[in-house]
Design a protein around this nucleic acid. Structure first.
Lengths: 201, 201
DNA sequence: TAGTTTTTCTGAACACTGTTCATAAATTTG
DNA sequence: CAAATTTATGAACAGTGTTCAGAAAAACTA
């Protein structure tokens, strides 16, 4: 039953946006009363957390699938592409995973103040991040990426792509009229990634 | 009167967060009825748009103040710092300016679908962006930055910093435990900015 | 000043939200 | 079959943004 709710909720979130999908509407779609949902999710934030978690599982799948790529540069670029594609495919999940407060409230309730919650408490998100981290480490090891703190490089890379995607999804791209936005994102991602290459000439 | 409302609203948004500041609460603070506010703002989205606009004016002030810096590299770094500091100073405004839907709804109502709204309709935001764009152009002209499409570089740079700030404000930094987050942001911003320098040796 | 028009404001009412809880139905257990 | 336990209900609550007939205040006119 819990899975049925999650399933219906995710479909409705994808279709109408999760801000416009009310508790009552979900109940109606499932032919049950609003109260019933509370037997399976403590509140709306918990439902959103569950969706956010499923989203990370989907993202992780796509990133994990590229971990086999031997060429370090290609692997990172393909990962970035997968990340971007995920955002285009599931904009509502992406929003939940990286922008919204709601899912984080659950973490906060469970484990106290967020800045004291360590990475082991947010495993779904960590596994996706782990793919990128590991790939950056690999690229440095192979002498393809510049030598610097892995955390710094990983964070920079991730922030760049997230920033682009986020600005697009939040419709803050009016300063680039006459541009194919999705193409600009891909081109810029390539540019940034290339910047981390060691210069040898 | 309109300014008085805006003033009180901004203070309340800063203090309690704009999601938790209700129309009624603002009215109460102003000792007037909820209906009165509708004489000056058509709805909550318009109020949020006005706040978002004021936010951009503040940001633009800080960026404009750095336009006089002669050293291209230093200017861009100082601009990034100013941008970041703005986010730490006014997290609620930042959220409104770059993450939230609400203010964009107003633009959409006024000028149709967002992807058809050109940059002239979003002047407050454009002026801040213009500072960065101009500085990137300047850095390329002076031979400090690599030669590439200005749009691509500007977008990459802006996305990086926005991405970092955004991830911090949205509390998505648990993957970096034992890190001073604000320091990581500054160091990573420096790193990324330096990557755009032309290699001459 | 008195009367009329115009502007400003009110607060009850509406439709909606997430959430709670006594009650009822269904199911499992003895 | 009866008792106990699980599962489900839907009215009720306090909250949200928004609307609108009517009241108060201000401005203008005679």
């Amino acid at each position: 039953m819990r899975e049925r709710i999650l399933d219906v909720a995710m479909k409705m979130f994808s279709e109408f946006g999760f801000e416009k999908t009310s508790w009552r509407a979900i109940a109606k779609e499932l032919d049950c009363s609003p109260g019933t949902l509370y037997l399976y999710f403590e509140n709306k934030d918990e439902l959103l957390f569950a969706v956010h978690d499923e989203g990370f599982k989907l993202l992780h799948e796509r990133m994990q699938a590229r971990m086999g790529i031997k060429d370090p540069m290609l692997r990172i670029k393909e990962m970035a592409r997968a990340y971007i594609q995920f955002a285009w495919d599931y904009p509502e999940y992406y929003d939940l995973m990286f922008n919204k407060q709601a899912p984080m409230n659950v973490l906060e309730e469970r484990h106290g103040p967020l800045d004291e919650v360590d990475e082991t408490k947010w495993t779904s998100a960590m596994s996706s991040f782990g793919c990128l981290y590991e790939s950056v480490r690999y690229a440095i090891e192979k002498g393809v990426f510049i030598k610097d703190e892995i955390e710094k490089i990983t964070f920079s890379l991730w922030s760049s792509v997230h920033g682009m995607v986020s600005l697009c999804l939040c419709k803050r791209m009016m300063m680039f009229p006459n541009h194919n936005i999705e193409e600009l994102v891909l081109k810029s991602t390539d540019l940034v990634t290339d910047l981390f290459k060691v210069k040898k000439d």
